[in-house]
């Protein structure tokens, strides 16, 4: 089933994105967080069996966190991006790992890099960053250069280079 037909059946507004070098357009839709699970289920039964990625964008001016669920269909070779918006000061969503098991890993990554909380996912511990004790580093208000200066450049050199053996 084509993505347009599914969108029309569900009554969701969508947007076509032309990609250079791609003949087929990609579809992007903003959906309500409550309805996302049902929509992904519908897409999954209609041929969109490949969950490509879950990514996150920090819209600091709007005060939002955008979560983008990226699906792909091998039948029609179409890409679909479903995005939801969460409040930035307390981003919280439920886990969708029962739909696609690989979502669990993406949720762990988004949790670590952006601080988004996923209710129901019990593996949101330390993942890629080890020994991290600051705010999540991919948030826009994290000052990387300042952090680098404080953490790494303040480490003193150990003397003794050139001592005689």
């Amino acid at each position: 089933m084509k993505a347009i037909e599914i969108f029309k059946e569900l009554g969701i507004e969508y947007e076509e994105m032309k990609v250079k070098g791609n003949s087929t357009p990609r579809y992007r839709a903003k959906v309500e967080p409550d309805k996302l699970e049902e929509i992904i289920k519908k897409f999954k039964t209609q041929g969109f069996k490949h969950f490509v990625a879950l990514s996150c964008v920090d819209w600091i001016k709007e005060g939002n966190m955008e979560l983008i669920y990226h699906l792909f269909s091998y039948d029609t070779l179409e890409d679909v991006f479903l995005s939801i918006y969460l409040p930035r000061d307390e981003p919280k969503y439920k886990t969708l790992r029962h739909l696609f098991p690989q979502i669990e890993t993406y949720e762990r990554e988004v949790h670590e890099m952006f601080g988004v909380e996923f209710e129901g996912n019990d593996r949101l511990g330390e993942f890629i960053l080890e020994d991290w004790n600051d705010m999540p580093p991919m948030r826009k208000d994290f000052d990387t250069v300042k952090y680098v200066k404080e953490k790494y450049e303040s480490v003193p050199l150990v003397e003794g280079r050139g001592d005689k053996q």
């Binding site: 994290f142 990387t144 952090y147 953490k151 790494y152 450049e153 480490v155 050199l157 150990v158």
Partner: peptide, 20 residues
């Protein structure tokens, strides 16, 4: 000196501060 990753939050910049 960190090279390409001079402002990365997760890479150390100078190795001989930690091991000779």
């Amino acid at each position: 000196n960190g090279g390409l990753y001079w402002d990365s939050y997760n890479t150390i910049k100078r190795l001989d501060k930690y091991i000779p």
